[in-house]
Amino acid sequence: MTDTSTSIRRRFDRAGIVLAGLCAIHCVATVVVVSALGLGSHFLFSPEIHRFGLALALIIAAVAIGWGALKHRRAAPFVTAMMGLSFMGGALAMPHGTGEAVLTIIGVSLVSVGHLLNLRPFTKRT
């Protein structure tokens, strides 16, 4: 794999980590803002935001994690990220609230770990 393609994959991994962080902030902020102030529930709880975020996470993970798996043949980044995406998908089936936020935060954490594992340089065991 060329240096350019590796650089692009690494950018996708970093974008995945940033997206996961933003998602976690959104979840916590939504619960806090809506619970404390009762504001923004229509916008912050909008199912479209969650569907769009999951779709974006799926695309970024598919490109970065899939590309990385093809390059370094390690299962850990792929399995970890897919578990996280499953938690995020499960959160969409939950009613809005703390349970949904917890599942989403678990999911985005696992996706972030998958991207971090994907960024680690591959070393052969001898």
Rank of each mutant, 00 (worst) to 15 (best):
L110A: 08
H50D: 09
P95C: 12
R125A: 13
G90E: 01
R51D: 10
H26I: 00
G114A: 04
P121T: 15
L54K: 02
S46Q: 07
G90M: 12
V63D: 04
G97C: 00
S7C: 04
V34S: 08
L56C: 09
T123M: 14
L119N: 02
G66R: 04
A29M: 08
S7R: 13
I106S: 05
G99V: 03
H72E: 13
L116P: 13
D13Y: 05
M1G: 14
A55P: 15
M1V: 09
V63W: 00
L56V: 15
A64I: 07
R51A: 09
L56G: 06
I60V: 13
P77G: 05
G114E: 06
G97R: 00
E100D: 10
W67F: 07
A81H: 01
G66K: 11
H50T: 06
H115N: 15
A91V: 08
I106N: 01
G16E: 02
V113H: 04
T126G: 15
W67A: 11
V18R: 12
A76K: 10
T104M: 02
R120C: 08
R14H: 11
V32R: 00
L37D: 10
G66E: 06
H96A: 13
A81K: 05
A15R: 06
G107H: 02
A91Q: 04
H72T: 13
T4L: 13
L117K: 01
H50W: 03
L37W: 12
S7A: 13
